[in-house]
C-alpha cells in the first residue's frame, strides 16, 4: 500500500507564445503523504501556480501544455484520465483555494448556493440535504449559518476567504491546494484564516499543498517544504531540513533577505539581480548569475540532484561530493 497521496514525476509545462516558448515548469518531482502539508515556496514567476494548475489540469491550452511527466493521485495517473473523469476529481477529491477571494466567488449567487453547488454536483444529494450540509460547512469556518442567503459583496475579505475554504472542503477532499490563501488579507485576519484551515485539515485528515512566498507561514503549518526557482525545485526537505540545514545558496539568500522580528539586523542581504527570463533560461544552473558562490562549471551543463538524506535534496554543484548513501 502506497502512503503517498500525490506523486509528481518529471513534470514539464510550457506556454507557447508568439514571442517564444515560456518554460514555466522544468521537470519537477514532488511527493506528498496522506495528511501531510507541503509548502511550495518561491517568488513571482517561479512556476508555483502553474504547478498547481497542472495537477488539476486547469492550464489554459493553448497556450499552455504539459509536455511530459506523470502525476499520480492515489495511484492513478491524472494525465491519462478523460476530461469527464478529471471533472469528477476536481472539487471532489482534489480542490483548490485561490489567492484572491474577491474574484473567486460568483457575485450573482448567494454564498450558500455556491457551497451547495459543489455538494450537489459531487455527492448527489437532494437540494434540501445539500442546503443543510452547506450550512454546516459555514458554521465550521466560523460564519453563522443565517448568512446562507447573503451575497459575496455583503462579506469582508476575510469572510469571503472563509467561504472559499468552505467550498473547497465541502466534499471532504483528499488533497487541498491552497494558492497564497492569505496574501490578500490583513495579519490579524490571516491568523484567523490560517487557524481555521489548519484545524479543518487536521479534523478531516486532508493533505495540503500550500503555495506561498511567506516563509513565516511555512514554518507555522508545513511539515515538508519545496523551494522553487525558475521552474525547478532547487531544494526540498522536511521543515527542519530547510529551516535548520538549508544548503542551496538561493534558500539561504531568501532567509537573508527577510527582515527578522526576533533578531536585530542592521542591513538586509538582498539577492542581487533578477530571475532569468523563462523564455531564455541559461545553460546549467538557473540561479548561477545571481549566485554568490558560483563556479565556472555551474554554467556548463545539467545540474545533478544531490541527496543529503531520504527527505532532503538540492540541485546544486557545491555539494556534489557530499552525497550520502540513501537507502
Amino acid at each position: 500500500m502506497n502512503d503517498n497521496i500525490l506523486e509528481i514525476r518529471n513534470l514539464r509545462i510550457q506556454y507557447k507564445t508568439r514571442k517564444g516558448i515560456v518554460e514555466a515548469v522544468n521537470g519537477i518531482d514532488l511527493t506528498i503523504g496522506k495528511g501531510e502539508t507541503l509548502g511550495l515556496v518561491g517568488e513571482t514567476g517561479a512556476g508555483k501556480t502553474t504547478t498547481a494548475l497542472g495537477i488539476l489540469q486547469l492550464i489554459p491550452d493553448p497556450p499552455g501544455k504539459i509536455i511530459e511527466g506523470e502525476i499520480f493521485f492515489d495511484g492513478t495517473d491524472l494525465l491519462k484520465l478523460s476530461i469527464s473523469d478529471m471533472r469528477k476529481i476536481r472539487g471532489n477529491s482534489i480542490s483548490m483555494i485561490f489567492q484572491d477571494p474577491m474574484t473567486a466567488l460568483n457575485p450573482l449567487m448567494t454564498v450558500g448556493n455556491q457551497i451547495a453547488e459543489v455538494i450537489r454536483l459531487h455527492d448527489k444529494l437532494s437540494a434540501q440535504d445539500a442546503t443543510v450540509k452547506s450550512q454546516q460547512m459555514l458554521e465550521k469556518v466560523g460564519i453563522p449559518s443565517e448568512r446562507f442567503n447573503e451575497y459575496p459583496h455583503q462579506f469582508s475579505g476575510g469572510m469571503k476567504q472563509r467561504v472559499v475554504i468552505a467550498i473547497a472542503l465541502a466534499c471532504n477532499p483528499a488533497l487541498l491546494i491552497a494558492d497564497e490563501p492569505t496574501t490578500a488579507l490583513d495579519v490579524t485576519i490571516q491568523a484567523q484564516v490560517l487557524e481555521i484551515m489548519n484545524n479543518l485539515k487536521n479534523e478531516l485528515n486532508t493533505s495540503m499543498i500550500l503555495i506561498t512566498h511567506d516563509l513565516g507561514i511555512v514554518a507555522e503549518i508545513c511539515e515538508k517544504v519545496a523551494i522553487m526557482y525558475a521552474g525547478e525545485i532547487i531544494e526540498s526537505g522536511t521543515a527542519e531540513d530547510i529551516f535548520d540545514r538549508a544548503k542551496h545558496p538561493y534558500t539561504i539568500g531568501l532567509f537573508g533577505a527577510i527582515p527578522n522580528l526576533d533578531e536585530d539586523t542592521e542591513r538586509l542581504i538582498p539577492i542581487a539581480g533578477l530571475m532569468p527570463d523563462p523564455m531564455a533560461l541559461p545553460v546549467g544552473c538557473n540561479f548561477a548569475v545571481r549566485c554568490p558562490r558560483k563556479m565556472p562549471e555551474c554554467e556548463l551543463g545539467e545540474i545533478p540532484t544531490v541527496h543529503f538524506s531520504e527527505s532532503h535534496y538540492i540541485k546544486c554543484l557545491l555539494f556534489k561530493d557530499m552525497e550520502q548513501e540513501v537507502i
Binding site: A191, E195, D214, G216, A219, E220, F255, D262
Partner: peptide, 17 residues
Amino acid sequence: SAIPRPNIHRKIERIIL
C-alpha cells in the same frame, strides 16, 4: 503575535482576535 515567523523552534503564543 499574529505575524508568522520563519522559525520552526520558537513557537509563540498567538492571540487570535
